[in-house]
């Protein structure tokens, strides 16, 4: 008599719609680095594609294994294909790593807040990415590149641990070759053959070609990297209100009901993952919030 009667039968027929993943079939698997891969997905049984806004994420489900939040890394102007880039580090991502073309994943989403691209119109845009943090920024980059005339200078500062960890190499090369984009890549540790920058990504901020009084910064990477990047941006004269960061927390629902992603007063899933830096700065410097 632990639960009231007839509730059992209700649960059996009720598919909790907001928690129900929809099947998406893998059309292509692309290996990015040793432990990072990109999946291109299409919804099964429908051809309505997948619309989203840069910065948003999905809850991605591997049959019987589990479900985790992963940001969308594709082009928002090409919603026919859903693209996720992730590193195989946990149970679910390691299971994803074993999937091949024709296999199926479950998707719920898109969820969360977007990068403030509207606010960036007519101004310089500085993207700062650390490691896998380039993936959640890529949809915003695609948007800016496709609407290049609407923005001022566009700068990407990208740091990884080593040259082998650089994501989206071909695309970075293409973008770097353009005269209207400034792409700078740096690595923490170089190896022979590396002729680029060495050092953390923040060291590139003072000299990067943008006007701090008229720039917006979108930053994604490890929390410590985002803190130092934001501090460096502010030091250079960027208004703190023009700096955005994307946060990561444990999520079980993605829709503000499970409580896991709380960060002080905000739910990262529904209030974020993209936040104005000013909103989260004080919490980022305190222990274990």
């Amino acid at each position: 008599m632990e639960t009231a009667p007839d509730l059992q039968s209700i649960s059996a027929e009720a598919a909790l719609s907001p928690m129900l993943p929809r099947p998406f079939v893998i059309k292509r698997v692309r290996r990015e680095t040793e432990d990072t891969f990109t999946l291109e997905l299409e919804p099964t049984g429908r051809d309505d594609g997948f619309s989203f806004t840069p910065g948003q994420f999905n809850m991605v489900y591997v049959f019987g294994v589990g479900e985790i939040p992963i940001s969308i890394s594709g082009d928002p102007a090409r919603p026919t294909t859903l693209i996720h880039t992730t590193r195989a580090v946990g149970t679910v991502t390691k299971a994803m790593d074993k999937l091949r073309r024709g296999d199926t994943l479950g998707i719920r989403g898109p969820y969360g807040s977007p990068w403030p691209l509207d606010k960036a119109v007519g101004r310089d845009v500085v993207f700062v990415a650390g490691g896998i943090g380039l993936a959640p920024l890529r949809p915003a980059l695609y948007h800016v590149v496709s609407n290049r005339e609407r923005f001022g200078k566009v700068v990407l500062l990208y740091g990884t641990r080593s040259p082998a960890d650089i994501l989206f190499r071909e695309e970075l090369e293409t973008w770097r070759a353009r005269f209207d984009l400034d792409v700078y890549v740096t690595v923490d540790r170089a190896m022979s053959g590396w002729r680029g920058n060495v050092g953390v990504v923040t060291t590139m901020i003072p000299k990067a070609p943008f006007d701090p009084r008229n720039a917006v910064a979108m930053v994604c990477g490890p929390e410590i990297m985002m803190r130092f990047t934001a501090a460096e941006m502010i030091k250079r004269g960027v208004d703190i209100r023009d700096v955005s960061v994307s946060l990561e927390r444990n999520m079980k629902c993605g829709i503000g009901l499970c409580g896991h992603c709380q960060f002080g007063p905000v739910f990262v899933c529904k209030d974020g993952p993209v936040f104005p830096y000013a909103q989260v700065r004080d919490m980022l410097v305190k222990w274990e919030i």
Binding site: I10, A14, A15, L16, S17, P23, V25, F63, T104
Partner: peptide
């Protein structure tokens, strides 16, 4: 290679009132 709800499962919440 895919998965699906068991046949007959309603995707909506039942209207029956516990």
């Amino acid at each position: 290679k895919s998965f699906a709800l068991p046949a007959g499962t309603k995707e909506s919440t039942p209207s029956r009132d516990p």
